[in-house]
C-alpha cells in the first residue's frame, strides 16, 4: 500500500512554547485514520503543522512521496491536501456555490470548467440539500448544512488527502451522526482521510486506524477496533 502522509518525529512550537514533540503518524492510501485527543492536546497544532501554517523545528512530513516539510500552505494545497478546518471557516456572506467554487480554485486553473462542473454534480449527488441551497448565503445555513458545505468545499479540490479538524464540534448529536455517515460514504468511494476528533466513540467507529494524542505526544496507536476496547480510550471518554 502506498503511504499518503508520513509525519516523522516532528516538533512544533508557538514561538518558544513547545506544543508537539516527536510526533509521528502515517496514513495509507484509501485509509481513514483518526487522531483523537482531549481539548488542548495539540490536535489543531498538528493540523497547522501539516498544512504548512506552522514551521516544524524538527522532523519531516512527506505527502505522496513529496517532502512538504518546509512548504507554505498554498504550496501544500497544490500537492493535494484539502482541509475541513475547525469551526468550518466558510465564506459567510458568499453563496454555497461560491464557497464550493473556491474549493476548486486549483482545479479551475488545472482542469478547467468542465471538470469542475462534474465535481459539482458529484457533490450535489452526495448532498442533495446543498443543490437546493446553492444560491443561499453560507452563513444563513444551519450548523449541519454548513459542515456539509465545508466538507464539499474540500471535495471540490479533488485532493489526494482530506484533513478534517473536529467536523462534529458544536453540532447536535443527530447531526453528528449525519456527518459521520458522510465520512463513511467518502471512505467507500476510496478517499483518504485524516480525521482529527475529540469524539473518540464516533471517530473510532469510522476509522481504520487511530492515534491518541495527549499533551503534544502520541501516547497510543493501533487498529481502531482494538483501541475502542482499550483502557486508554475509556480514560479519554471520562475526560471528555
Amino acid at each position: 500500500m502506498t503511504t499518503m502522509i508520513e509525519i516523522s518525529n516532528i516538533d512544533v512550537a508557538y514561538g518558544k512554547v513547545p506544543v508537539l514533540s516527536d510526533v509521528s503518524l502515517t496514513v495509507a492510501k484509501g485509509e481513514i485514520v483518526t487522531l483523537i485527543g482531549a481539548n488542548g492536546a495539540g490536535k489543531t497544532t498538528l493540523f497547522r503543522a501539516l498544512t504548512g501554517v506552522l514551521p516544524k523545528s524538527r522532523g519531516s512530513i512527506v505527502l505522496d512521496g513529496k517532502d512538504i516539510t518546509r512548504m507554505k500552505p498554498d504550496r501544500v494545497a497544490r500537492e493535494g491536501l484539502a482541509v475541513v478546518p475547525e469551526g468550518r471557516r466558510l465564506f459567510g456572506p458568499m453563496s454555497v456555490l461560491d464557497n464550493l467554487m473556491l474549493g476548486s480554485f486549483l482545479r479551475l486553473t488545472g482542469q478547467g470548467k468542465g471538470a469542475v462542473n462534474e465535481d459539482l454534480d458529484m457533490v450535489f449527488d452526495l448532498f442533495p440539500r446543498l443543490a437546493e441551497r446553492r444560491e443561499q448565503l453560507a452563513r444563513t445555513l444551519s450548523g449541519g448544512e454548513q459542515q456539509m458545505v465545508a466538507i464539499s468545499r474540500a471535495l471540490m479540490a479533488r485532493p489526494k488527502v482530506i484533513l478534517m479538524d473536529e467536523p462534529s464540534i458544536g453540532l447536535a448529536p443527530i447531526i453528528v451522526r449525519e456527518v459521520f455517515d458522510v465520512i463513511r460514504k467518502l471512505k467507500e468511494s476510496g478517499i483518504t482521510i485524516l480525521l482529527i476528533e475529540q469524539n473518540a466513540r464516533m471517530a473510532l467507529k469510522v476509522a481504520d486506524r487511530a492515534y491518541v494524542m495527549e499533551i503534544g505526544r502520541i501516547t497510543a496507536e493501533g487498529d481502531a477496533g482494538d483501541l475502542r476496547q482499550s483502557d486508554i480510550i475509556r480514560k479519554l471518554y471520562l475526560a471528555a
Partner: peptide
Amino acid sequence: SRFGRVIKGIRENEDVMRLFGVGV
C-alpha cells in the same frame, strides 16, 4: 468573475484561501 470570487474570499478569510492553494 472567478477573479472576483477569489478576492471576495480573501476579504472573508485569506488564511483559508491559502489552504485552498490561492496565492493571496
